[in-house]
Structure formats: C-alpha cells, structure tokens
C-alpha cells in the first residue's frame, strides 16, 4: 500500500458515499445517469468475484464489500425507490456500445485465459468507459448540480491517483500491470474536459455548465 493508492481508495469511497447521500437525502436521482451506475455495479461484480475465495487483508475485503453493496444500493434507488425522479430522457447513451467491445477485448487482450482473469480484465476495461453515460447526460442537460460535480471530481481523481500508485509500484516494487495502466489512462483522459470545467467553474462557486 502507498499513499497514492490509499488516497485513491479514499477518493473513490467518498465519491460513492457522496452519490448515495445525495440521492438518499434529496430523495431524487435527477441528473444522475442510471446507466453509469449499472455499469459500475457490473464492474464491481465481475472484479470482486474472488471476494470469498481470495483473502488479501481486512481492508481489501471490507472495501470490496462496501463498493459492491453501495453500487447495488445506488442502482436500486435509481431504478426502484426513486425511479419517479430518474431522468430517463437524458440518460440515453447506448451502453451496448461499451459492454460489447470491452467484453470482446477482454477475450483478446488479457494476462491469462481463465474465467476469473477474463472477467477481471473485462471489469478493468469497462470501468475505464463506465462514466461516459454520465458525462454524456451532463453534456445533454447542459449542466450538473454542484454535488454531482463533486461526485464526478472525486471519482475522476481516484483513478488519476492510481496512475501515480502504478508509477510508485513500478519504481519501488518492480510491479506493473499494463492492462490496468492503459485502461486507467483512458479513464483519466475521459475526465480531462470535466476536470477543466470543475476547476475553472465549480471551485469558483459557479454552477457546472457544459456547452450543450
């Protein structure tokens, strides 16, 4: 464990908590893409299948349980509990264009042709593009609530910090995983536009508005 990975996990956890609280407290999922949350639930499910078979540490197991539980709770709130507030008309990104290519790619490019490894690889590829429906929805509605932009910032920063974690691990542990690094780079690049708007607007107290 190193500081970058720890801060990354904290940032990821806080993004998940921010979103859960926003929906629960405001009893509304307006402006939130249910499709992205569905993709995240798939990402965690396919990545943490070894949750019960491969104990690494209490921290690792407990974080995995929290991630999986909270992603399902978020999907449940969007599609069931508060579905009346779900803005389906603006959440129109075709997720099959994300799931199919990443699934095919995980069969072609992986470290080991075994079910667990292919599912892990699929989850890494899918995570790198899972935020697209949400970013697409924000660009369609032309703006996002401030709390939603904080959620997106925390979520984007988590993988950016993981990039530094991989530099650290390459330097000091002679470890690197090219699949995770390339997917992490793609994931971070997708946020760049949003990072720019967040830093130039939201941090100055303005509302986040994307050129529609």
């Amino acid at each position: 464990m190193n500081i970058f990975r720890f801060l990354g996990d904290i940032s990821h956890l806080s993004a998940i908590i921010i979103l859960l609280l926003k929906i629960w407290k405001s009893r509304s999922c307006a402006g939130i893409s249910g499709k992205s949350q569905l993709l995240f639930a798939i990402v965690f499910t396919t990545r943490y299948l070894d949750l019960f078979t491969n104990f690494i540490s209490f921290y690792n197991t407990s974080m995995k349980v929290v991630y999986v539980a909270s992603s399902y709770a978020t999907v449940w709130m969007i599609y069931s509990k508060f579905k009346a507030t779900y803005d389906g008309n603006h959440d129109t990104f075709r997720v099959e264009f994300l799931i199919v290519p990443t699934a095919i790619l995980s069969f072609l490019v992986n470290h080991d042709f075994t079910p667990l490894e292919i599912l892990w690889t699929f989850s890494i590829y899918l995570e790198s593009v899972a935020i697209l429906p949400q970013l697409f929805m924000v660009s369609k509605t032309g703006e996002a609530e401030t709390i939603t932009s904080h959620y997106l910032f925390a979520l984007g920063i988590y993988r950016t910090l993981y990039l530094f974690n991989w530099i650290w691990r390459y330097q000091f542990e002679e470890f690197f995983d090219l699949i995770a690094i390339v997917a992490g780079l793609v994931q971070t690049v997708l946020y760049c536009d949003f990072f720019y708007l967040y830093i130039t607007k939201v941090l100055k107290g303005k509302k986040l508005s994307l050129p529609a």
């Binding site: 996990d9 070894d50 690494i56 690792n60 995995k64 470290h111 892990w120 993981y162 542990e173 470890f175």
Partner: peptide, 10 residues
Amino acid sequence: ELDDIGKDEL
C-alpha cells in the same frame, strides 16, 4: 507471478 500481486488492488 507478477500479475498475481496486482490483484491486491481494488
């Protein structure tokens, strides 16, 4: 091998 270490990440 190397790759197994990676699986300690979330």
